[in-house]
């Protein structure tokens, strides 16, 4: 049970927030994270196109490797919240919902924040620390 990291990807595929928590995944440069976020954005769009089932499909919601998984939450406005956790983590959805709440309160209601731009807000940092802290215990 570990939470490795949190990404927020804006509707254009740009990484606007990235933070690491527990150790366990490779440390990457911020440029590499940007590239991965862009890739994920593209993959997310394609995965909804190749559905074999009747009706429409969402994009990828959970992506699994051998020891970790990425849980992706797409909001109504197209912003993606991505949580990197261990495979056994069951609370990823709940945590993402809480992060979204914190994002709405501390980022979107902040008059000094420019939409779609990187998030630099102390209030949001603290809120995230509280949320993920709860999830980790």
């Amino acid at each position: 049970m570990a939470i490795f990291g949190l990404w927020i990807i804006n509707k254009a595929g740009g990484l606007v927030y990235q933070r690491n928590f527990a150790e366990g995944l490779a440390p990457l440069t911020s440029n590499e994270y940007l590239v991965l976020a862009g890739t994920l954005h593209g993959i997310h769009a394609i995965t909804s196109r190749i559905s074999p089932a009747a009706g429409s499909s969402s994009g990828a919601q959970v992506i699994e490797g051998e020891t970790f998984k990425m849980t992706i939450m797409l909001t109504a406005t197209g912003t993606k919240f991505v949580l990197l956790t261990s495979l056994a983590e069951t609370t990823a959805d709940v945590i993402l919902q809480k992060v979204y709440e914190a994002y709405s309160d501390a980022v979107m209601k902040n008059p000094f924040h420019t939409p779609e731009m990187p998030i630099r807000s102390e209030g949001f940092e603290t809120r995230v620390t509280t949320v993920i802290g709860i999830g980790q215990s």
Partner: peptide
Amino acid sequence: KLSGRDELFTSYRT
């Protein structure tokens, strides 16, 4: 890339 070792992608779900 994320794992930093040769970890394999196994599945995704929509």
